[in-house]
Design a protein around this nucleic acid. Structure first.
Length: 477
RNA sequence: CGGGGCGUGGCUCAGCCCGGUUAGAGUGCACGGUUCGGGUCCGUGAGGUCGGCGGUUCAAAUCCGCCCGCCCCGACCA
């Protein structure tokens, strides 16, 4: 890997993105087009994301299970919208064990159908409800244009699938999980997402309503970072998921599904990163603190290493690493760990040892601005709050960036302009024609209709007809 | 699939138009020394079927044909 400078984000954002991922060893390209290898450092980040989410799923009553990778083709065809939405991007297995299969198997692009099939076997009574199951797994969608983490043929995610007795309960669940995602994004990833509802044209194939958390990336493009769907009775009818209610009458269930994928890693990278590389939020960073010892001869080395040992003892509550490499200089290590986005660096050199301190360097504040010293014996009771400050600063900074790039265009011409470098928040009549016109003119699509809306109305930014809802228009990944 | 571009040591590329010694550079890798508070410097070394097949020629990385693969733009999309 070259030690050349990264391309800057302003000169070539997507090249910056690709290079930072590969240089930081988060992921690499696999020998199959469109597939990636998630390397240990990237996977460690994903594991931390998984833990943060899984804890929240369990706290809201969900349990984990595992469903098959292969789905009979006929299952997909049972829900009309669903098959129309997914058939162009299916990977299909037609041969198994050297024999042509009687029925082709689809490599799951999502699991509503096979889980629906199982739910129809498991659910008989209102007493069986609700069923609240999540699975962690991988899915395959044969995308044409791929991009590390954002869009690959195979990706890792979690998909929750729930079945309920009433529409109200299912809607409540859909919103509950949307809120879980929002809470995760804000408080763990420091990614300030906007929760809202998808338009008819943007919603999930087979859903009644789709909800999303939308995030603004560093180039102002929007990224759908997680979704929660109210599926109504569409899949329940397709798979005959029925139960007897207390009055002994047969009812269809109401189902939901919700998912968040390794795409979120892309969201973290493009929300916080800078021209030096990644910046990972302390709560999710695989390495929260890196310790770099500095010395120029054996005498200094032993002095410094003794101090490093003291420091290590005080850091036991955090995920930290001591960089003892002797073949590279401290300056190299600084750049190296900055590229990898470690939020806090502790430098320990002879001068620090003489003064009984260590030097802290905050990743998000380059150069002198992020540096300070701390007495060694203060480490264990101060580091926690330093990391909390960094976490808060990242969220604050990303939120400010987002808000500075959301505009209220006064007319359609202004909308066309602002979506070139930001999002437009505008009244929209709800018609697909108006959406399509914006897309054709600007490549921007409706991202979401936020849940908390002003009790007002206004003229549609496109056609001028009365509109009840405001929507975000943005170019998206 | 439509439009554009590219395949040369691990990586990034030069060389190709205008065919001609042992195919180069930077970086990475290995070893030795030097350095170490912001990507040290010097030296030595390993590493290449020039994407594949065929053709032209005394001679092909270089010219011609076919094929394969990848990247970028577009339609699709967590």
């Amino acid at each position: 890997m070259s030690t050349d400078k990264l391309p800057t984000r302003s000169e070539n954002f997507s090249e910056w993105y690709n290079q930072v991922i590969q240089r930081a060893e988060m992921a690499d390209y696999a020998p199959v087009r469109g597939c990636m290898v998630v390397r240990p450092y990237g996977w460690a980040l994903w594991e931390n994301i998984q833990q943060a989410l899984d804890k929240r799923f369990k706290a809201t009553g969900h349990v984990n299970a595992a469903f098959p990778l292969f789905i009979p083709m006929s299952f997909l065809e049972k829900e009309k919208q669903h098959v129309e939405g997914f058939s162009p991007e299916l990977a299909v297995v037609t041969i198994g064990g050297g024999e042509k299969l009687e029925e082709p198997l689809v490599v799951r692009p999502t699991s509503e159908t096979i889980i629906g099939y199982m739910y129809s076997k498991w659910i008989k009574s209102y007493r069986d409800l609700p069923v609240l199951i999540n699975q962690w797994g991988n899915v395959v969608r044969w995308e044409m244009r791929t991009r590390l983490f954002l869009r690959t043929l195979e990706f890792y995610w979690q998909e929750g699938h729930t079945a309920h007795a009433t529409a109200e309960e299912a809607v409540e669940e859909t919103i509950r999980m949307l809120n879980v995602y929002t809470d995760f994004a804000l408080n763990e990833a420091a990614v300030p997402v906007i929760p809202g509802k998808k338009s008819e044209t943007e919603k999930f194939a087979g859903a009644v309503d789709s909800y999303t958390i939308e995030a603004m990336m560093g180039d102002t493009r929007a990224l759908q970072a997680g979704t929660s769907h109210f599926l109504g009775q569409n899949f329940a009818r397709a798979f005959e998921i029925q139960y007897l209610d207390p009055n002994n009458s047969l009812q269809y269930c109401w189902t939901t599904s919700w998912g968040l994928s390794t795409r979120f890693i892309g969201a973290i990278i493009m929300t916080h990163g800078d021209d030096q590389g990644l910046i990972l939020p302390p709560r999710l960073a695989p390495i929260q603190i890196v310790v770099v010892p500095i010395y120029k001869n054996d005498q200094e080395q032993s002095k410094v290493f003794a101090a490093v040992q003291q420091v290590e003892k005080q850091l036991s509550a955090w995920r930290f690493k001591v960089d003892l490499r002797s073949e590279v200089t401290p300056g190299f290590k600084f750049n190296d760990w900055e590229l990898r986005g470690v939020p806090l660096r502790i430098e320990i050199g002879p001068k620090d040892v003489d003064n009984g301190v260590v030097t802290l360097a905050r990743r998000h504040l380059p150069g002198k601005a992020g540096k300070s010293t701390l007495p060694v014996d203060q480490l264990s009771n101060q580091i926690g709050s330093v990391l909390d400050e960094i976490q808060a600063a990242l969220l604050e900074r990303a939120t400010r960036f987002r808000d500075e790039h959301i505009f209220n265009p006064k007319n359609y011409d202004e909308l066309k302009e602002v979506v070139q470098n930001g999002w437009a928040f505008s009244w929209w009549c709800g018609s697909a024609d108006c959406e399509a016109k914006v897309k054709e003119d600007t490549k921007a699509t409706t991202r979401c209709i936020p849940l908390d809306q002003p009790e007002e109305s206004g003229p549609c930014i496109v056609c001028g007809k009365p509109a009840q809802r405001k929507v975000y228009f943005a170019r998206a990944y």
